[in-house]
């Protein structure tokens, strides 16, 4: 598989001696949905800012799509990555939905005559076509995040980073964004890197990187990483619900696999029940 993001021995300090990112390395495969999981203050948001060059690394190597991230290549790297930040209000730049999507296009020097077609296309992709002339104050948090995604998609990136993009949303908004992102990952083969502390979201991803005090503690497929209960708990993270149930049942002597995915667990339990 092609590696789209390669991070090698990355070091970053906000203050001298305080290693926010402490010599970490990881690789992300093209087209996958990866989550970086860690509690607040583990350094996970700093990684996002390093990857798009909003912060400058102390040492180490970041490669995006084979291109080295340095001052000269900054624009080349940024044009491959779109990022959705946590606060929906503070990343809405335009006066209306239309203007906000146009902002990125303006920066890319797209011909103004072509902008309306592009804006309509991506607004409809995130289901915001009826809101094109709405001002941000009239939109819900989930809608604003969808606009942010449309603005990013219009710039056709190959990677989307979600920096706790759903943590300020209500459950409805959260679900909308999660569904949208999964769909983009599948249909358009966009690589997703989601930075989160939501264990259930991590359980649905392809690859999990577990972060604590600026170090990668563990990484791998979710059903490897998320099955280590003690490790998760020691990092003040939750354990997937399906895992708690299936582990509990195993302790009672019931022959069942350990799951982190609820749907699969329900299926197996129902089969067992019908065989009884």
């Amino acid at each position: 598989m092609e590696k789209i993001i390669e991070v090698k021995d990355l070091l970053f300090e906000y203050e001298e001696g305080l290693k926010t990112i402490n010599h970490i390395s990881f690789q992300i495969e093209k087209g996958t949905y990866t989550t970086i999981l860690g509690h607040n203050g583990s350094g996970k948001s700093t990684i996002a800012k390093l990857l798009i060059g909003l912060l400058a690394k102390q040492s180490g190597e970041i490669k995006v799509g084979g291109i080295d991230l340095n001052e000269e290549n900054l624009n080349k790297v940024r044009s491959q990555i779109g990022i959705v930040f946590q606060n929906p209000d503070n990343q809405f730049i335009g006066a209306t939905v239309r203007d906000d999507i146009a902002f990125g296009l303006e920066n890319m020097c797209v011909d103004p005559k072509k902008m309306d077609t592009i804006i309509n296309e991506y607004a409809s992709k995130v289901n915001m076509l009826d809101f094109l002339d709405h001002e941000p104050t009239k939109l819900s948090g989930g809608q604003k995040q969808r606009v942010a995604i449309a603005g990013i998609l219009a710039m056709s990136p190959s990677i989307i980073i979600l920096d706790e993009a759903t943590s300020m949303l209500d459950p409805k908004g959260k679900k909308e964004i999660n569904n949208l992102v999964h769909q983009l990952n599948k249909d358009k083969n966009i690589t997703i890197l989601s930075i989160t502390h939501d264990i259930e979201e991590a359980a649905l991803s392809d690859y999990v990187i577990l972060l604590n005090s600026g170090k990668v503690i563990d990484q791998g497929k979710p059903d490897e990483v998320l099955m280590k209960r003690k490790q998760l708990e020691s990092l003040s993270l939750d354990v997937p619900f399906a895992y708690k149930i299936s582990e509990g049942l195993r302790k009672q002597g019931i022959q069942i696999e350990t799951y982190i995915n609820q749907e699969k667990l329900v299926k197996e339990l129902c089969q067992l029940h019908s065989k009884k």
Partner: peptide, 23 residues
Amino acid sequence: EDLANAMESRNYNPEAKRTRYKQ
């Protein structure tokens, strides 16, 4: 600060050439 980050990550550079949507 958030806004500056959001603008920069969407490739905004005040010195660079930009087109304008609204004509």
